[in-house]
Nucleic acid binder design. Sequence first.
RNA 1: GCCGGGGUGGCCGAGCGGUCUAAGGCGGCGGGCUGCAGACCCGUUAUUUCCCGGGUUCGAAUCCCGGCCCCGGCUCCA
Length: 473
Amino acid sequence: MSKRIERFEPLSEREVRGYVCGPTPYDSMHVGHARTYSFFDTFVRFLRYVGYRVKLVINFTDIDDKIINRAREEFGNDAYLRWREIPERYIREFFEICEKLNIGRADHYPKVTEHIDDMINAIRELVNKGYAYVAPDGSVYFEISKVPDYGKLSGQDISKLVAGARVEPEPGKKNPLDFALWKSWKPGEPWWSTPWCPGRPGWHLECVVMASKYLGVPFDFHGGGLDLVFPHHENELAISYALYGKYELARYWIHVGLVTIRGEKMSKSLKNIIPVFEVLNKYEGESLRLYYSMTHYRKPLDFSYEGLSDAEQLLRTLYAACDFLKQLYKEARDEEAQEDSKVIEDVKKVEEAFLTALADDMDTPRAVSELIGLARIVTSRLIYMPEKISKETVLYTLQVLKSLGNILGILFKVDIDKILFDFIELLIDVRQRLRRQKMFELADYIRDELAKRGIIVTDTRVRTYWTLDRSRR
RNA sequence: GCCGGGGUGGCCGAGCGGUCUAAGGCGGCGGGCUGCAGACCCGUUAUUUCCCGGGUUCGAAUCCCGGCCCCGGCUCCA
């Protein structure tokens, strides 16, 4: 609310409760949606890493104009009977994409259609308290002028908003800015019955109702895309003020910057929307995940495949470091060694810097660069001195690399099946023997054939290291 | 019109009053390692500089004022 970066202090000592505005499942998720959910997943992982219990709720607005329209397009006159297929399909897709992007499960995924009664009760209360009124057609509107601070969250001045070009006054509204809590039924639309009229819920109210049901009010953070600040979150805040008497639905509001394409916002009219599945046809979700982390969450992210390829390559470097460590482990000493304390100290420094970066308004780009620094320690120093470090130090380094990567939602495919690992090691050993006997043709053959299978071999003066390319599809 | 967010190297992107002779990545260049190769390693790649013009300060990319430009929001929006 202050428009400033504030120190994050949860309402309760050990637990953080958060609500993220989920999708309206009427179409495929695009790279902008995925950015938002990826960010909050990283945020939650970070909070957990530093010791909080986190309760996260992400909702589905599964009844809405856009869903009805989509159903009409697809099913024509059957839309009335089959509209539920639309949200079902896209909610399924949402979860598939979350899985590919390694976005962890929230604690609850409430749906509007499963909370109609709660919403009706809330509307009744709002009407009784005088914050809402019933229009002649039975629709119920929220009266924003009853909320003194309306506009504070988004920094809007209501007197100026009225003049806004895009406000299309609806009959029955006292003020064009009043918004529908309940929309009266029109032919062909789904409906639920209420004391006012058959119809369906409007946008905004559901988030307040469901957040309060699953988290209580106020809760710690409320998030979503930047485009939700106005009117959505402003209206949520107004509703919660009316309902709970406090102009504070959530302690902190976190809004993720929008994704642009060549500097412009993705939109249907510009036909520049990039659905997540399109990206996932060419890249691993993990690469996209890292790509997101390379831009600070509050900044706009100008999506490009070039940038994504950069991220993919970085990810290879990170995995190479992990794989090298596992091979290094075999060569490292059993007992404590000369360089151990120095290495451990350096690794700890990186870990600290990484966490400091995230504690500073979730500076993931800085965190990424720290993580790369850690990979560099491995690929430029450690692999050349197996005799100077202990197995324990190698394991420790690997564990830090993995767990820091895990906060960013990456490096979750480090483990390699033991049989595969041993098998590759065997081939590497055979190739080494061939090289020693100057049978380079055969040695190169092995290297090439391994490369075709995504195993990249690197000869160094101490050992031949190899890495599995996880970005291959 | 009103309200936000921005403008940093060839590109992406950190930095938010001194440690900036500007992190990190990509790309370029040079080299190393190697039998060769590399998605390996090292070095180098902004140096009258951080959109422009003023100002504050011992000191500014970082703060203030004034411009210019870009993007977004103003009931479809993550």
